[in-house]
C-alpha cells in the first residue's frame, strides 16, 4: 500500500465484484486495494474485461442486479458499500459523480439538457427552478457549449457526441464534487476531439479541486492526464506506480507488454506493433496463480501455482509478480 502523510480522500480495501450467472459465479474484481489523495488524478488501465469499469460501478452502487460488491470503499469517512440507499444518494451527484462511456445514450432523450443539469442542483442543494437553471447555463458555458443559454433549452439529440460528453462533464462537475469517476469518457468520441474533451475535464476538475479516477485502456490518455496509474488484469492489481515511472521502468511483465503494444512516434518504424500473445482472461472462477501467467513471456513454475503477493518495490510503487523484488 502507498504510504503518504496526508489523509487519502478515498481508500478502497480488498474490493471484490462478483456476478451470479446461470453457469456459476464470475469474479470481475478480485481483491483490489488503492488510495487516492485529494486533487490527484489516478488512472486505472486494463483491457476489456479486466474489471476496471466495475470498480467504478461498485463505488456508485450501480452494479447490475446480479452483481455483488465486497470489501470496503471508504470515502469521506463513510463506507460507500454499506450505505443505505438514501445516504448513498446524498453522496452520489453531490460529492461523488461519474461520467460514462457512451455520451450518445447517457443523457435522457426526453428532457431538455438544461433541466437535466438543473435537476441535480434542485435535489441536492434545494435551489429554486430559476437559480438552478442559471447555474446550469453557466456550467454549460464553462464546458464551452456555444450559446449556452439557448442550447440549454435543446434536447440531447440536437447535440454532437463531443458536445454531449461535455454536457455530461458539466453535469458531473456542477455540484463541485470531491471525486469524479470517468469511465472511458472519450472511447466513443472522434479521435480529433478526444484530447480536447479530456483536457477540458482535467482543467475544470483542477479548478474545483476535484480528484479524478480515470478508467481507460488508452495509455496515451494516461500519459496525458494521470499522476498515478494502477494496472489491472483479470480483476487484480498487477502494478501501481507514478505515471512517468511506469512508462520509463515498468516492473510487471504485463505492463511491459502493454507498453510494447503502444505505437510511438519516436520509435523506429517496424512492420508490426508489439502484441501480447493469447486472449484476455474473462472473469471466471478464482484462479490459484497469477491471472496473467498463461500469457506471460517470463513465466516460471510458481506463477501458475501460487498467487503472487503484492510487493512494495519503491516509493509509491507496488507490483504483484513473483519475479519482482521487494524494496529494502
Amino acid at each position: 500500500m502507498i504510504r503518504m502523510t496526508a489523509e487519502p480522500l478515498l481508500s478502497i480495501r480488498d474490493l471484490s465484484v462478483r456476478f451470479r450467472l446461470p453457469e456459476g459465479e464470475a469474479v470481475a474484481v478480485d481483491g483490489v486495494s488503492l488510495d487516492l489523495m485529494p486533487g490527484e488524478v489516478l488512472g486505472i488501465v486494463g483491457e476489456s474485461g479486466s474489471g476496471k469499469s466495475q470498480i467504478l460501478y461498485a463505488m456508485m452502487g450501480l452494479l447490475a442486479s446480479n452483481g455483488r460488491a465486497g470489501g470496503q470503499v471508504r470515502f469521506q469517512g463513510q463506507d460507500l458499500l454499506s450505505l443505505p440507499p438514501r445516504a448513498l444518494d446524498r453522496v452520489r451527484g453531490q460529492s461523488l459523480s461519474m461520467i460514462f462511456q457512451d455520451p450518445m445514450t447517457s443523457l435522457n432523450p426526453f428532457m431538455r439538457v438544461g433541466d437535466q443539469l438543473a435537476e441535480t442542483l434542485r435535489v441536492h442543494q434545494g435551489l429554486s427552478r430559476d437559480a438552478a437553471w442559471k447555474a446550469a447555463v453557466a456550467m454549460l458555458d464553462r464546458v464551452r457549449i456555444p450559446d449556452a443559454a439557448s442550447r440549454a433549452r435543446r434536447y440531447p439529440h440536437e447535440f454532437s457526441g463531443g458536445m454531449r460528453q461535455r454536457v455530461m462533464i458539466a453535469m458531473a462537475l456542477l455540484a463541485k464534487p470531491r471525486l469524479l469517476l470517468a469511465d472511458e469518457p472519450t472511447t466513443a468520441l472522434d479521435v480529433t476531439i478526444q484530447a480536447q474533451v479530456l483536457d477540458l475535464m482535467a482543467e475544470l476538475a483542477r479548478e474545483t479541486g476535484t480528484s479524478i479516477i480515470l478508467v481507460t485502456h488508452d495509455l496515451g490518455v494516461v500519459a496525458r492526464l494521470c499522476d498515478r496509474v494502477v494496472v489491472l488484469y483479470g480483476g487484480r492489481v498487477m502494478e501501481e506506480a507514478r505515471t512517468e515511472t511506469l512508462f520509463d521502468n515498468a516492473a510487471h511483465p504485463y505492463t511491459r507488454g502493454l507498453l510494447a503494444a503502444m505505437p510511438r512516434l519516436e520509435a523506429p518504424l517496424t512492420p508490426r506493433l508489439g502484441t501480447i500473445p493469447g486472449t484476455p482472461r474473462s472473469g471466471g472462477g478464482d484462479v490459484s496463480g497469477c491471472p496473467f501467467a498463461p500469457r506471460c513471456p517470463d513465466r516460471i513454475d510458481i506463477c501458475t501455482k501460487a498467487r503472487p503477493p503484492m510487493r512494495i518495490t519503491g516509493e509509491g510503487r507496488r507490483a504483484a509478480c513473483h519475479l519482482v523484488e521487494e524494496a529494502q
Binding site: 456508485m60 450501480l62 444518494d89 452520489r92 460514462f100 443523457l107 441535480t120 441536492h124
Partner: peptide, 9 residues
C-alpha cells in the same frame, strides 16, 4: 443509470 448516478432518489 445516469439519473441514478445523480443521486436524485
Amino acid at each position: 443509470r445516469t439519473a441514478r448516478a445523480k443521486g436524485i432518489g
